[in-house]
């Protein structure tokens, strides 16, 4: 061990074994040393465990996107410690290529980033850049397109620009999924989609999370979808983590949620009202169907 490594070993915090993402005292300032300096992140402590589905919410300008862009080093760590899948991103030269293959990033309106002549080329683009050979990448593209529910043979030679909005979004998602990332980071993946398109994208993400163990970090403004899908919700406020807890627990704080200009999900508002009357449903009831079943069960066994 060189001397420098020894010094570093002293300050490097212990990363929990099961952590996919581990941030400690992470800070970021835009336009530092200028009149427009803005503290976007201050003292962020956050751990996301492998296989978790975590939602990030917060008002515009609260630091959500800045945080998320740190995760595959689109933004480099200014101060504090960040570890993603064992890679120390606070280090001077982390292995970015390996990291970026493991952390799939889906930006807002990803369909605006489609560019190739055919769907196949577009989905293969990332793989090509990572040096996957031709046959293998076509196979991987095929798997990815199947995963997002598109018929490979029918769609592979179409121009991405001839597709409908929902199809475009799924092709863009396939381009990220083709790389088989271990962490999927999504910035408002359902924005602008109709209710059916939303449900399709969310059920895809849920199945990746539950069946393939992909760690999911989803930024969203739609509190209903956050409430129904996330294991845990992290609320950003003015660049800080204001809350970090399971959805049912979080949305009991109606006044605080509304003070942050966030909405209380419909089913949370309903359950909160029941609780004010002394009727408590299990915390796991979060969708319309689950809440309905629980209420019906209560009526049938009134004294339970």
């Amino acid at each position: 061990m060189s001397r420098a490594d020894k010094v570093k070993a002293v300050v490097t915090p212990d990363v929990p074994q099961n952590a996919a993402i581990f941030a400690q005292d992470l800070n970021f300032v835009y336009n530092a040393k200028s009149n427009f300096a803005k503290q976007a992140l201050s003292h962020i402590d956050l751990t996301v465990n492998k296989g978790e589905f975590v939602a990030i919410v917060g008002h515009t300008g609260s630091g959500k996107t800045t945080f998320v862009q740190h995760l595959n080093a689109l933004i480099r760590v200014q101060s504090g410690y960040l570890n993603v899948l064992g890679a120390d991103l606070s280090a001077r030269k982390p292995d970015l290529k390996a990291l970026r293959r493991q952390v799939g990033m889906v930006f807002q309106y990803p369909e605006y980033q489609l560019f190739a002549d055919t769907v196949l080329e577009d989905v293969c683009f990332g793989l090509k850049n990572f040096g996957v050979d031709k046959d293998q990448r076509e196979q991987m593209a095929q798997d990815a397109l199947q995963l997002v529910g598109l018929d490979f043979d029918q769609i592979k030679s179409k121009s991405p620009f001839d597709l409908s909005g929902g199809e475009k979004r799924r092709v863009a998602l396939a381009g990220v999924l083709a790389m088989k990332p271990q962490i999927l980071v999504m910035d408002e993946p359902t924005a602008g989609l109709d209710p059916q398109g939303k449900a399709e994208v969310l059920s895809l993400v849920r199945s990746l999370n539950q069946q393939q163990g992909v760690t999911v970090l989803m930024v969203s403004h739609d509190m209903n979808e956050v409430y129904e899908n996330a294991d845990r919700v992290v609320v950003f406020r003015n660049g800080e983590v204001a809350f970090d807890m399971p959805p049912r627990q979080l949305f009991r704080n109606e006044a605080e949620i509304e003070a942050m200009n966030l909405e209380v999900p419909a089913m949370a508002a309903f359950c909160n009202e029941l609780e004010r009357h002394g009727v408590v449903l299990p915390d796991s009831c979060r969708t319309v169907d689950e809440v309905f079943a629980a209420v019906k069960a209560l009526r049938e066994v009134p004294n339970a």
Binding site: A269, F270, E273, L274, V279, L298
Partner: peptide
């Protein structure tokens, strides 16, 4: 309204 609905349901349950 989730609040009115919740109140109505409670009335019936209790």
């Amino acid at each position: 309204s989730a609040h009115i609905l919740g109140g109505d349901v409670c009335q019936e349950l209790t």
